[in-house]
Design a protein around this nucleic acid. Sequence first.
DNA 1: CGGTTTCATGAAACCGGTTTCATCATAATT
DNA 2: AATTATGATGAAACCGGTTTCATGAAACCG
Lengths: 367, 367
Amino acid sequence: MSSLPANKRSPTITDVAAAAKVSRATVSRAFSQPHLLSAETVARVTAVAAQLGYVPNHTARALSTGRAGNLALMVPDIGNPFFTALMRGVQTRALEADYATFLGDSDENPELEDVLIAKLSAQVDGLIFAAPRLSDEALTAHAHRKPLVLINRDLPNIPRILIDTASTYAVAMEHLISLGHRSIAYVEGPPLAWSNAQRLKAVRSVARKHGIRLIRIPTARPTFECGQASVRELIDSGITGALAYDDLMAQGIMAGLASHGLSVPDDMSVIGCDGVLATRAYPPLTSITVHCAEAGEQAVDLLTDLLQGRAASSTTRLVLPTEFVIRATTAPPPRGHAHGMLPRTEPNDTPAQDFTRGDSATHPRTE
Amino acid sequence: MSSLPANKRSPTITDVAAAAKVSRATVSRAFSQPHLLSAETVARVTAVAAQLGYVPNHTARALSTGRAGNLALMVPDIGNPFFTALMRGVQTRALEADYATFLGDSDENPELEDVLIAKLSAQVDGLIFAAPRLSDEALTAHAHRKPLVLINRDLPNIPRILIDTASTYAVAMEHLISLGHRSIAYVEGPPLAWSNAQRLKAVRSVARKHGIRLIRIPTARPTFECGQASVRELIDSGITGALAYDDLMAQGIMAGLASHGLSVPDDMSVIGCDGVLATRAYPPLTSITVHCAEAGEQAVDLLTDLLQGRAASSTTRLVLPTEFVIRATTAPPPRGHAHGMLPRTEPNDTPAQDFTRGDSATHPRTE
DNA sequence: CGGTTTCATGAAACCGGTTTCATCATAATT
DNA sequence: AATTATGATGAAACCGGTTTCATGAAACCG
């Protein structure tokens, strides 16, 4: 019936120029460089424009200025709250800087990642890759074509924001060890993820230092289901504490343990990472708090700096700190397993001051 | 040092034309209308283009064709798994149809919604609003400007996809009642959400029919935290079963109950909606399964139909069915509260055939 | 008061494609 | 063989802005 999108061609700069009896250049200036015009001209033009319902055509503007006014964020999995939080930070900051945001979800698939990048990079001024799964070479190649900021990937000559979880995983390990755990598992994240490698290294080094048995449990994807599926192996291996790659997997592990009739933390201690789901678990999850949204904001800042040729050289390397927060999923190992007993900690939801990282990492650090 | 984004201006159609010794028009045709050219010319041009690394400029193309090749998806909260699932469906289908997707998260805020729309609509061919919080008037106004598809909002003259959860909430109510519950709460979603109104109506009508006491618990936002916060009221009100607006809230309710020392389903039955988190809860949540991704795909299909003037009149109204799935969070009310006793159901994770909706709603229905 | 700035504005080129229309060669038709 | 389709290609206009450069008027200056 009423064929909705009314086909009345929207007014162009020429229409406004005619109506306001000025040149097209003047209309253009009224919108983009008003200070070049007399106040009264600006007033008249904008009035006429408003009356006609004129809005500058974004595409035309993009073509002639060469600036798209858009940026793209690529994430491996928007299903993961870590990335949705990141996305929020990006969108907020992008909007403040007057950019619109494309979102690409690569579904952990490097090839889809490439396809999406190809599709998006044509219409953006810059890209943000969060935890990309692409190869170093592919990333470097992309960085040569478009301004690019990485999050959680450490490549020389590409500006990047790194979330330092490694040192906090070390703290978490120490925490488990101080509770008396002697046999601990690290439930791994994606093999291609930088952060997985970092965390593994940190955890290994602490285990070695204390002579603790550490087992690695590889998983297909960082999902609830994979966490859940790892439980069989966790139980069989006889460990008493599990460090998961992230909160989502930790939650899966908790659910898996529960369905095996085991309770957390009495039968097993579990620690997550990201902090995004920690308070949504029951009992609340001891976890590493990551300021995801802040990482997104910083990425946008870095990118806009880059686009405006400000500071931010391509060697910028920003490291964001994280905090270890003890909640209710860590406790001494069960009697049968304990090699050292400590008083039972009281579940609480406030940051454990003793374990919060010191000044050295409290503020972003540029190198 | 190596200032990364190499500033070598990327080759234009003119460069390719010169190198291939053909006109710019021919190069253009080689890419957009190859059938108009001789096979050998196409081959030569594309070869030269490839060698030069030429890629058609998306913006220029958009300007001259008037088609942006983009679409935008607006959601109230990407933190909610319902919307991330939807988003995935949209992205997948959009990519197949060769569209890139802008994502806008309005944070449940109608004003931000408007700002984002203004920002995005300039560079998209069409919009998809999922569960918009804007007023009917504002939405209609937008629909007059740009092709627009609604998800979970029922406005005449705007093509829309509706997820029929209402009739399945009725089934869920019947389920609780058949278990013996006589006092039930509906923990509400956003007052501005169409689906909330639908669900409330359905639940009310069943309650009235059976003479059941139904209490409404309004909440600020459909979040885990608000679900959790509603628990105090749930307990005080003496109800034995809670129907939540969605899985996220149901999860919050479960966590809240747990921290009050109450167990699900022994002390209280809980039912969620969306199915997205149901298997991530412990015990697994009895919930209404929604095919979120499918809704997103359908929305894109509808929109592309609309854009190509195909079928899809502006009065299209697609209704997607949902299914009631009994898992482990519903059981007869505790003794003290029971007004009617039934055998305890065995927790299971397969769709309860008896409660799956019949044929009438199994297939999308167009009116 | 003539000469130099400064300021507001317009004409026209430009961004990088697409598309209409004209042209010309070749194939098909009579 | 003359005529008409047909097909491949090029010239130029166009999409809707921005921006350079030129121009004329007003302000400034010694």
